[in-house]
Design a protein around this nucleic acid. Structure first.
Lengths: 244, 244
DNA sequence: CGAAAGATTGAGATATTTCAACTGCGGTGG
DNA sequence: CCACCGCAGTTGAAATATCTCAATCTTTCG
């Protein structure tokens, strides 16, 4: 809230946090850059763990697949996010990391990071912060999955996306979802039809608007309306009348 | 599988990993012990972050509460598990940590841990391993929430619990669930009635048995039957006929 | 013992899925 | 250039899993 006073529309505070972190990595660690295109795997489940990856640009999903072919998108990663942290414990990556757009990732050797951290403790702080945020984000996802109806989960997803953009200093009132309805549905634990209906409903009550460019570009008149919508849908009867 | 050869019923491999970790902490760090009773809060959401906590004995839940009173159990913690990791990033704990039984936890200062890690790198390995396993566990939970029907989620919960016991060298063929149906349901994203029905169904098809002591003591004739049940329920029509 | 909390079970209500039809769009090739 | 195909998305209607509400039973504990 407070940072919004200094910058009416965008919060550049988070953006500098991320930029500083990337700068720190560049300055104090050997980094291997890699450009990826949509669909490329940064690493795959079961592959031997050695590197952590930091997103420099682009947009990634982590896909967990279970024994009998069930496939689940468990997290999304934007600029500044770390990937591969779940591989530390047993020497193998736990998920597939898939690029959803062209982008650049930085690979850093985990053992090198630990060594460099002796001289540059901020590296450890950065990595721990990333892990900690990911845990927190996971918990938010679980809460959303467990306590919210489908409509509200979709609204929460849009708010999450807008927050992620905001933290990176990007505009949050209008953006392009770079996922299909099926991918969104998978991430949110519902079918693609339910996602579609939820978005239609959000548009009907004017919490979001579709731009002329297509049904993947979304305009959010005011972000608070999303939060209100989530609250109204999660408390049973109260807001039911308001939204037809 | 392989370790089962040396110890027919229990895996002591995981148990020693945990014992070694606790020993390491004791030997190389100042530790503050604290005994807790069922219902006690180790820390609460919003409280200023300073310590990480390691479970020495007992059993704990992490409860996330959202803006308007929605309350969600996001994880469970047994002996050797770390708690409070999600507080690192922003200086405040993200959840309530609640004891579900009498137990002892060890508090270690995060800053002290980082300092001690310079001399004893294994400390860092231990902490990173704990974080990494927690991320992995979260992803498994999400997959379960998103892809499995209620019955299978309950079966998955029992398998998870048995695995946790197994890793600590405890018997896994029979144990006491120390959670109410309501707590289990909250954790699994379903109502207490659905949990009850799922357990009844599991008992009906003889995947589990209730002991004479009450409906909270559960006997699992063979753990593989749980896995089979989950698989059968997650692939639509195939196993539907077998289970009435 | 009696009250309160936990658990089970049934029956109707409801949210979401499933199945299916239809639209719009972009690319490809005749 | 246009016809056609495949993919993404939307929407409707029936099917179904889960929730809600309610009654009953069991266990625990003061």
């Amino acid at each position: 809230m407070n940072e919004a006073i200094s910058t009416p529309r965008f919060s550049t505070l988070g953006a500098s946090r991320i930029a500083d972190m990337l700068q720190l990595l560049q300055d104090s660690m050997p980094i291997q850059r890699r450009v990826v295109r949509a669909g490329d795997a940064v690493y795959q489940v079961g592959q031997s763990f050695g590197c952590l990856y930091v997103v420099n640009s682009g947009f990634f999903k982590m896909v967990n697949l279970s024994g009998e072919g069930r496939e689940q998108v468990v997290s999304l990663h934007f600029k500044g996010d770390w990937m591969g942290l779940d591989g530390i414990s047993n020497g193998k990556y736990g998920c597939d990391a898939i690029a959803m757009d062209t982008g650049e990732i930085w690979a850093i050797r985990y053992d090198a990071l630990i060594q460099a951290a002796v001289r540059t403790p901020a590296l450890l702080t950065a990595m721990h912060g990333a892990m900690s945020r990911e845990l927190r984000r996971d918990h938010d996802s679980m809460m959303s999955l467990c306590t919210l109806p489908a409509d509200a989960r979709v609204a929460g997803f849009l708010r999450y996306w807008a927050d992620a953009l905001d933290q990176r200093g990007l505009r949050t009132d209008q953006f392009t979802l770079r996922m299909t309805r099926a991918e969104i549905g998978n991430y949110l634990g519902m079918t693609l039809e339910t996602v579609s209906r939820a978005l239609s409903k959000l548009a009907r009550v004017d919490v979001i608007r579709f731009t002329e460019k297509g049904r993947r570009d979304i305009h959010i008149p005011q972000i608070e309306a999303l939060t209100d919508f989530i609250r109204d849908m999660s408390s049973p009867a109260v807001g039911a009348a308001a939204f037809h």
